[in-house]
Design a protein around this nucleic acid. Sequence first.
DNA 1: TTTAGGG
DNA 2: CCCTAAA
Length: 678
Amino acid sequence: MVFQRRLDYGFDGYQVPVVPRASRSARGRGPIRKKSENNQKHAFEILASVAGEILQEEETSAPTNTACGKDLCNVKNTIQQEQVDRGKFLIIEPLLGEPCNEKAFACIPELQGHWHGNALNKFLHNQESFNSQGSFASERFDYPETIYVAEKLVVVNSKNAGGSSSCEMNGESSHARKIFKGKVEGLTERKPEAELVKSSSIESGTLLVKDGSEDAMDLDAGSIGHASVESNVKASLFKDCIGLCPFSRPCADVEVVSRDDDGKSSGCSQYGAMPKTSRPLSYTETRRMSNLTASRHWRAAPISKSGGYFRTDWKTKPPFRNGRTSYSCQRSQKIFPFKKRKFFDQSTLPTSDGAFHCEDIFNSSNKRTNGNDMVSATEASSSVKSQHASLDSRDCNVKLSIKSFKVPELFIEIPATATVGSLKRTVMEAITSILGDGLHVGILLQGKKVRDDNKTLLQTGISEDDKHSNLGFMLESRHAKMMSPPHTKNPSNLPFSAPGGITRHTTSLMLQEGTSHASSVPAETNFSSSVGSDLGAVCSLAKASTADKMSDSRALVPVPAIGRGALSVVPFNCKSMHPEFGQRRIRRPFTVSEVEALVQAVERLGTGRWRDVKLHAFDKANHRTYVDLKDKWKTLVHTARISPQQRRGEPVPQEVLDRVLAAHAYWSYRRQLVKAEV
DNA sequence: TTTAGGG
DNA sequence: CCCTAAA
């Protein structure tokens, strides 16, 4: 049982709930983060509740901590109340006494955005704050009011700390650091750990990362559901165009609808955190949403510059181009549900230094994840096997044969019109960028990392001719400083840690076509988009890494639900895409239908009323902000003025362009008139 | 928050 | 598509 194991570790903990956005404020636009103590208190209470439930769930027979009784009773209510029922949560069991690897957390964008000042880190490791006092120093723990991304974040600390929640947990500290992840609702659906382990496939709906000995990660199937985007154009008779519409021709009310989410849940409401209102997302909201959208995706160099009219790619500037101030501001905005976002659930996390925390461990036994069907398409990576050659008794040479390394994850988006060659290049670039210098090879022996580079193989024991020497190689962050948790538990006792200390690693690289449906391969993002050329090849890799007990990379990776959408995948270049900085939204060229809708709306409403245009024609297209529409109009006007030969991207009918010019001229004229009058 | 423009 | 000054 999952939690049984936790108890073995001396689980007791704090849970830091991620309060859904909906609860933020009535108007839904409150400050992103509050330092209100009450807030924190509340949060912790919820945490306690959840923790209680977890425990209760696990120990079906044994009632959990009575101290949490009240909370336990209200867990479900609380969860519902908080509307986090659909969310996911993470449970982190930090290693007490071990400074948390800041990078590990720093590289988690979700946390970055929500835990101000690395609050989580402080929370987890601020000894003075809670270890000694047994309670949280609220003033030091900046609990975010909302955390969308992770929707539910549960931090379980092995140290006994009542804290504000006054929830007493059993308190022996544990050396283990575990991270559980799953949906909140998974509390009741959670599979026993054994099961999870067994079915390492992603379908279990929970992600479980265990301490050193092994990490099992299961992507939340639900969250990665199938994404589909459909856009349709509703046309209805436009009656009152006369008088309003400067153009005599009949106007149809065209509305571009783009459903970002599956069925019922549309827009951000899918996360249950957003109120399901018909109110169009405000620009800011939309931005917030999109801000995280493409994060952690590698952005391949634009292979084909298309879409822009007078500028194809709008200059892909580094995310942190203007990284001066307003930083905190921005990060605070990044608490949006990841819509259309692809996650890499993995131990590979971009570190603060931009490197990858990669724990792709390959061991000699090449212990692969049991039948993972997650590898659906192209298994780009071959299993790695390192063998111990017999020791040459004479010169003591150690012969190793590493067949191959798996490439961590690759996630790319490329226009459907791109050539195969460009796809190859893109993939190559992605791989190169990963391997470039973000990673280095790590060696795992007997399940332990060999850190001392100066030791000889002999000293290390690698020279031993041991068939089962458990020698493993892994790719890891170059700069990541792994911390070695005092592991008291015998790794071999851990279900995951094979005597060989091998971890399992699953890497898959698949290319899928845009049309995909929810499959049993949640990890692999199904990508579907109606956005024309958005269809992209998605190389995703789900990787589960394991366990080296020290890997900081095992950090939690919130797995947000993937929306539909065109995930722009680009190799997540840690260097240029530091999670701390907002990510550029994925480029989603306007389709002709959208252009027509826009043109029509502008014809009616005129320029300068972008919000109305948005409401009228793109109300449902959450990914189109009024700024986008304004920009598009700008480009349309430009496009209409240049020769067809100079135009790029999906060709817009000349007729439409003519209308653009006409409308533009008309409204410009009107504006002048109005101006003159005033 | 929107608009309007430059980048 | 981003960023922002202004409104």
